[in-house]
């Protein structure tokens, strides 16, 4: 059964996941690469045109060899220089990796690219696509032979957790025993939900934002009721900010 992710457990016991690329994304990347190859071939054709003046035989021979080398070598050279990426893969944020998460070896890159001859049969990578669809790690034949996978690379940046930065007054902390009870009763999943709502609040529509924080505030108020003076005059969103501050910042 395919899960869309490949989990790797390191010898240190750490587990991390790699997001496997599906056949459609890979096909699109291959289409972009094909367009690049066609553009390169066209440019090459123009660049070699003056050779016709010297000898049409030699010019034709150079063209045949150059096209062949570009066709075979493009994937190999690009994936070697860009560590598992071609132009198409770069644009779609895909990367070829070793199936065990290790570094790619040149022989792996060569094998997976040479086996394109087989994967592209009978037309439009149908065979490779079918293998990609039905194998556990979304591998085409070339990937199976070379022990490689193609993964999606999400845009990973350090998350913006400025919502947790200190410096703002938190009325809930005036009631230390209730704050401690809140920490005790809230489950990690509930705390995470509140934190995520805060982190992603700017992505929400104003109406949805009000509704979401209203629901969350009602839920947390129910877990540990704070006295009226602690919550008077603060919005539901501010209330959740205070709750997250209590939960995630030790004092």
């Amino acid at each position: 059964m395919r899960t869309g992710t490949l989990q790797i457990r390191t010898p240190d016991g750490i587990v991390f996941s790699l997001l496997l690329a599906g056949p459609v994304t890979r096909f699109l990347a291959a289409a972009i690469d094909l367009a690049c190859l066609m553009a390169a071939s066209s440019l090459l054709g123009s660049a070699l045109a003056p050779l016709q003046l010297v000898s049409s035989d030699v010019a034709r021979a150079v063209m045949i060899l150059a096209f062949f080398i570009i066709q075979i070598g493009y994937g190999i050279v690009a994936e070697w220089l860009w560590r598992g990426q071609t132009i198409g893969k770069r644009l779609l944020r895909l990367r070829v990796m070793d199936v065990q998460g290790l570094r790619l070896h040149p022989s792996q890159i060569v094998i997976r690219n040479l086996l394109r001859f087989l994967d592209s049969l009978p037309v439009f990578y149908l065979l490779g696509g079918l293998f990609c669809l039905f194998t556990r790690k979304a591998q085409r034949l070339g990937d199976l032979a070379a022990n490689t996978i193609v993964v999606r690379i999400p845009r990973v940046e350090e998350p913006d957790l400025d919502q947790l930065l200190p410096g703002k007054f938190n009325s809930l902390l005036e009631h230390r025993h209730l704050a401690s009870r809140l920490r005790q009763r809230v489950l990690p999943q509930e705390a995470s939900l509140a934190l995520q709502a805060l982190v992603r609040r700017e992505d929400l529509d104003p109406a949805a934002r009000v509704e979401l924080f209203g629901g969350l505030a009602a839920y947390f108020k129910n877990i540990v009721p704070f006295p009226q003076e602690a919550i008077d005059g603060i919005t539901d969103e501010q209330y959740i900010r205070n709750v997250v501050d209590v939960l995630y910042r030790k004092r």
């Binding site: 790797i8 390191t10 010898p11 750490i14 991390f16 996941s17 790699l18 990796m97 070793d98 998460g101 290790l102 570094r103 070896h105 690379i153 999400p154 990973v156 940046e157 350090e158 998350p159 957790l161 990690p188 999943q189 705390a191 995470s192 934190l195 995520q196 982190v199 995630y248």
Partner: peptide, 25 residues
Amino acid sequence: AHEPAMRLYLESLVARAYGEIHETR
């Protein structure tokens, strides 16, 4: 702690470093 964005960031760092560290071929 359940912080998906932070976990994703760290997973990406660990995955990349793992490939470099554990390559024993």
